[in-house]
Design a binder for these strands. Structure first.
Lengths: 140, 140
DNA sequence: AGAAATTTGTCCGTATGTATC
DNA sequence: AGATACATACGGACAAATTTC
């Protein structure tokens, strides 16, 4: 494997991709990022490089890390429009699984799922709505 | 304590030995492997190295691991019609706007929207479902 | 039912060797 | 020669799930 770092170093590229996932809501606030080991596998990068990328995100305040637990996405605020008309850009709620979601998660229809919805606006108009579904933590 | 990796790395050697034990039946299907702590003692290797060896076996489908329980030799392999490379599956389709989406996009309820759904799996089980909604390109 | 021990999961810091730009 | 990256390896610590007492 070569080691080309045209333009930007590798850890910056990885950091940017993770940043995009967080800001797009694909990794919602409070959710754990993939483990270092998973990231090394996904990006085909060495652990040191992944750690460098995460360190950059941490420095930028996008994530927080807890020893022995993992790295969380922190609630992100759009720096785009500082004012923003008090509309919730991202909200979390519980919804009942529709038939398709139920099948995907292998649960019964109507099972409570966590839904995280986030919006991307441009000039005030909603451009994209992202809804992320995941199962609730098991009740022992 | 040096770290020369001429020839084969240590984790490969450990993995090969464990593999031999499984395939020879000395570790029968379904049986638990020695704990990581036991393996570190036996092979005089760091825990991370042992875990790397086990990860290789897991990747090869020879063993499965459960948090807090242990790693066991897989009972019957060859039951898996699995993807293997694809971490995310994506599909695109058109859906009718529900009342909330209609309000967000400032369109009428029932208006056709583009929905992109992607899945994130871990060990074959769906972890997260992400649905991204956008307006269709304007049609005059 | 509850506490302790076991075991795996994850992160941290560090170190050495190799390879490429 | 230096910066970047990769691969490997060590040791320590905390977190979480499971089992055992």
């Amino acid at each position: 494997m070569p080691t080309p770092h045209y333009g930007q170093p590798r850890y910056r590229l990885i950091a940017n991709q993770l940043k995009e996932r967080i800001e797009s809501g694909r990794i919602p606030p409070g959710a754990l990022l993939p483990a270092e080991s998973a990231l090394t596998a996904e990006f085909q990068a060495a652990r040191g490089t992944v750690r460098q990328a995460i360190a950059a995100l941490r420095e930028a305040g996008l994530v927080a890390t807890e020893h022995g637990r993992g790295t969380y996405a922190t609630p992100h605020q759009h720096e785009r429009g500082l004012d923003e008309g008090s509309e919730t850009e991202t909200q979390q709620r519980q919804v009942a699984a529709d038939p398709e979601l139920a099948a995907l998660f292998a649960v019964e229809v109507g099972t409570t799922l966590m839904e995280q919805q986030s919006l991307a606006r441009a000039d005030g108009a909603v451009q994209t709505v992202v809804r992320t579904y995941r199962r609730l933590p098991a009740e022992h």
